[in-house]
Structure formats: structure tokens, C-alpha cells
Design a protein around this nucleic acid. Structure first.
Lengths: 213, 213
DNA sequence: ACCCAAGGTTACCTGGGGTAAGGCTCCGGG
DNA sequence: CCCGGAGCCTTACCCCAGGTAACCTTGGGT
């Protein structure tokens, strides 16, 4: 009786799918390689042959999630022209990703800051790439307004700050998941675009309408 | 020859000090309990007797770091009256903590989002407590400006968003540590208080001076 | 004097990440 | 046709590190 022999790319996809699920629901530490292997109906050494280590497997999952998220953000960024509309589209896309692909997001957010290994490095890189997308939006906006050099130079850290706040809000959202995605995105938008200085005065951002300067 | 017998609270402090250092420089996963034990000149079962598990030990470190940070933030919040000055003081205190107690900060930030265990729970709780302090500042500011109900209700998530952005900026700072603390705090302040909408126009916040509305 | 609470240790168990060694099957060339 | 090797796949094992059982030692309270 011949055992089904399956081509490498197909097996890799199977393994990644299972790994993503297991990692997402147990976290890196608590997930066991054996569980992933048996879930993918494969033996452990196959995982090691294809991914090198548990960490390598996790990193592959991250790559995948990251690519999906970046693509969604890029698509969103291209969907609007006005700076604030663009940012709004990006935030909606982000929270849509968090809501619709919770496993992928859990992988990205889960160990992103953990320890000093390659995981942290990859996490940092993923964040940088996402922040770079956001930073691009900011650059675009700043250039359109004719901002000075200093403002342009700060787009990178500002992008990171924005990503950090969105990440934090998404964690908060997970504890109160009934809230509509637009509400959370709205909070992020108000925080990031309007700033606390104005929010605290009761001003707020509303879609499509520029407040008078 | 009598071995020195040392009272529990003293030993606990020793262990925590060593654990904080080791956890900070290796991360939770890569840090070995044996290393911590031998570093504290004690045998492994003592650690287990006092802290229950590796995770328990880590959690104890988190408690410690968290208390220190919250205290610094509270002190800063009390040091100024104007809302923006208060926020500025808080941000300075935060980045001072990151700079001056890198180990404590590494513990707090390191595994704060990891997995689904008690670590994540504690991390979330720490973030909430810190965000609550910040949220208190916002509440104070909003109340002073006579903001409406909705703005007051949003202080919690806004606090979390602010903490998230500060956390993200601190990670960015760590890759470029020559930058003065005030510069990073300034970025955070501009982002959080002014908002991208104004930054992108070239406006910025500067200490002690309210921009005309 | 005695006992027991509390500090302390050695020696061990076990789960799980990682690997060595080899089997089967198919494909391409002599 | 057949044979060799490349590639899919497994069983069986190693061993590190988290966690524990069992026991020793010391000193203060009765």
C-alpha cells in the first residue's frame, strides 16, 4: 500500500496553515512541534527538513502574515488621495485585517517583542515595513502641505508611533470584540490625526469633512 | 562548617535582582532557571519554593518593574498642572525610565504580548494600569476643558493608544540610543498631543507655549 | 532538651525540541 | 530494461532544561 507522497510546496502550505492556527491559539512557547506535525498529518522531521526549527516555522508564518497585511495596507493607501482619507482607509484596512485574520494577526503581534532571538529581529523588521508604508502616507501628506525637512525626516518614527498605537488599540479591542471595527478605527484616527490636544477640547475628526483650521 | 542561612525576604530580593538582569538580557525563553539560580548563589529548588515557576519568577519581576514605572509616572503627573505640561512630564518620566532602568523596561516590554499564558495576562494588566495613569491625565485635561461625556469615556482606549505609541518609539530609540531622551519624548509629544494632521502641516508643539487655536 | 519551621541541597523525572539513520518511490540516463 | 540517486517520509533516539521528591541542617520557642 503506497503512502501518498506530496510535493514540497503543497506540504509547506499545509504545514504553515496548521502552524499558524496552533501558534495563534497557544502562542509560540506553548505550541508543541509535535502537535503541529500531527495536525498536518506529517512527522516531525519533515517540519525540520522544511523549516529548520520551531523558530524557523514561526518566522515563516510571520512572513506570510506580514505580506498579507502589507498588501492590504498598500491597497488601502492607493484607494484615496487626500491625506486624512488615506490614513482613514489604512486604519480601516488594518482593523479589518485584525478582525478577519485573527490568526495571522496573533502571529504578528504575539512574539513581536519577545526576547533577543531571531523572532524579535523579524518582528522588528515587520513593524518597520508596516511603519514604512504608513510613513509613506505621511510623507505624501507632508509633501503635499509643503512641510519642512524636519517634518519629513520624522516620518519614520511617527509611522512607528502610529503602528504602536494601532497595535495597542487592537489589543484593547480584543477584550471587547462586539465593538464595530469602524469605532475602533475612529478612535485611532482621532488619536493619531487630531491629537489629544484637540480631542481633549471636544473636537473630533469625522470622515470626509475637514475641520476649519 | 555552617552555611550562611539567609532570611526569605533578603533572598527574594537577591533572586529578583539576578532574574531581572538575566531575563532582560536573554529574554524569557532563552533565560535558564539554572543560570538565575547559580547567579543568585542558590539552588534551583529555592527559586521554586519562593516563586513557584519560571513564569512566577518572571511575573514577580514584572510586578516590581511595573510598580517602579507607575510610581515615576504618578510623580510626574503630580508635578505639573497644565494638561500639556502634565503629559510632557509624563512622557519625559517614561523615557527616563526606559533609559535609566533598561532591564526593568525590557522585562515589562519583552513578553508583554506573548502567548496566552499568565504572562500575557499580567502584561495586559500592567499596560492597563499604566494607561489608567495616563488616562487620568487625559480625564483631568478633558474635564478642565469642559469636554462632553463621549470624550471622557474614551480616555481609557486613548491612554492605551498613547502607551502603545510610546512603547513603539522606545523600541525605535533602542536602535539609535545616542539620541537625547528629550528628542524622543518630543516626538511622542508631538504625535500624541498635536496629531499628525497638524504635524503634517509643519506645526509642532513646543514646551510651555500654547499654539494659538 | 527537644521539636519543628524554615533555609538549603542532591539527585532525579519528564516533556519536548531536535537529529541520526535509513526506507520507499519515482524519474532520468545508460 | 534496470539502476542510481534525488526527494518524500518514518521510526527511534538524544539531551537539555523546567520542575520535583526526598532529605539534611540550623536555630529559636516551649
Amino acid at each position: 500500500m503506497s503512502v501518498v507522497r506530496i510535493a514540497r510546496p503543497v506540504r509547506e502550505r499545509q504545514m504553515l496553515a496548521v502552524a499558524q492556527r496552533v501558534f495563534a491559539e497557544r502562542g509560540f512557547r506553548a505550541a508543541s512541534v509535535d502537535a503541529i506535525a500531527s495536525g498536518a498529518e506529517i512527522s516531525k522531521p519533515m517540519l525540520y527538513a522544511y523549516f529548520g526549527s520551531k523558530e524557523g516555522l514561526y518566522r515563516a508564518c510571520m512572513q506570510r502574515s506580514r505580506a498579507a497585511l502589507v498588501e492590504a495596507l498598500d491597497r488601502a493607501a492607493a484607494s484615496a488621495e487626500q491625506p486624512d482619507a488615506r490614513l482613514w482607509a489604512g486604519l480601516l484596512a488594518f482593523f479589518a485585517f485584525v478582525e478577519e485574520e485573527p490568526d495571522a494577526w496573533a502571529i504578528l503581534a504575539g512574539e513581536a517583542g519577545a526576547g533577543g532571538g531571531a523572532l524579535a529581529t523579524d518582528g522588528a523588521e515587520a513593524r518597520r515595513e508596516i511603519a514604512a508604508t504608513v510613513g509613506g502616507m505621511l510623507r505624501h501628506a507632508a509633501a503635499a502641505e509643503g512641510a519642512d525637512e524636519a517634518a519629513l525626516a520624522a516620518t519614520e518614527p511617527l509611522g512607528l508611533a502610529l503602528v504602536g498605537s494601532a497595535e495597542s488599540l487592537s489589543r484593547w479591542w480584543q477584550q471587547d470584540p462586539d465593538q464595530p471595527r469602524e469605532a475602533v478605527a475612529g478612535l485611532a484616527m482621532n488619536f493619531a490625526w487630531m491629537g489629544l490636544g484637540r480631542l481633549v477640547r471636544g473636537e473630533s475628526w469625522s470622515q470626509g469633512m475637514q475641520l476649519p483650521g
